[in-house]
Design a protein around this nucleic acid. Structure first.
Lengths: 149, 149
DNA sequence: ATGAGTGCAAAGGCTTTGCATTAGG
DNA sequence: CCTAATGCAAAGCCTTTGCACTCAT
């Protein structure tokens, strides 16, 4: 993420937090910085390492607060480990590819026409299932380039 | 699941386990029975309750063994709780709808043409990402019929 | 028979919480 | 200033494991 976009990211986060009376502290900025540079969702342990000097409990509390504020999204990988990524309104809509070999998760984007056919599929599902569908995520699994070699 | 298909299910499981020198015990049959009747993935706590008289540690050990044998599939829900369902070779390929309100997960199936367009999307991804893709799952989120009312 | 499975209790690992202190707006 | 956030240690919760006993094949 470029410097300019980076500054805008922090501004977006700050505005969003301020509106909820949540403070944008140094530790939280480090978390957002780290996540914005990551190629895919990060675990708490990875963030603990990559943010430097953000204590465990503060990290977890910040992650919880940022999740509740809609700044980031928490999921769980195949091992049940919590993984965090910036929310889609900050990064843009994307999907995930999970390596069945090493477990790494990589962000991937679909082209317009692919995303459009996904939307058509969802519209059909909404009708046939009785659910009021609000979002979707396609997760593909396979072997990543570095495990393939 | 009908009685006949049910019997076939147990036979499939038994054959698969026998081939790996894993025994198909009463407790494990209860787990398979419960999962085959569930409308979506079950947690360990739910299985503990629904199987009756399968002790905690035995349940977890059976789930681990059955997962490793490819009989069932373990995932984790939004709260990080492990959830189990029969593997797709036993139930058929399907996807999940997650209720953003109550957290319930329901199995859903796509029609042939929808599944075919998903496959086309995946083929494109395989080319553009350099991954060797082997599977996919589409998770849709929304509000389930019972939470909508 | 004989090794896999069971069942209880104890341990593990990730995450949350209590509380006194610090610092952001 | 005044309340949210921090940071340490302690507690929680789901899941796994040690060990002696039991049962499936």
């Amino acid at each position: 993420m470029s410097a300019k976009v980076h500054a805008e990211l922090h501004e977006s986060v700050r505005r969003s937090l301020t509106a909820r009376d949540v403070r944008y502290t140094a530790g939280r900025r480090k978390v957002i910085d780290t996540l914005s540079e990551a190629p895919g969702p990060r675990s708490a342990a990875e963030l603990l390492d990559e943010t430097h000097d953000v204590p465990l409990s503060s990290l977890y509390r910040s992650l919880t607060v940022l999740d509740e504020a809609g700044i980031l999204r928490r999921q769980h990988d195949a091992d049940g480990l919590a993984r965090y990524e910036l929310a889609e309104w900050l990064t843009g809509h994307h999907h995930h590819a999970v390596c069945t070999d090493c477990g790494s998760v990589e962000d991937i984007e679909l082209g317009e026409s692919e995303e459009a056919s996904l939307d058509r599929i969802l519209a059909g599902l909404s009708r046939s299932t009785g659910w009021d569908l609000t979002g979707h995520s396609l997760e593909v699994e396979g072997v990543c380039p570095s495990c393939r070699t």
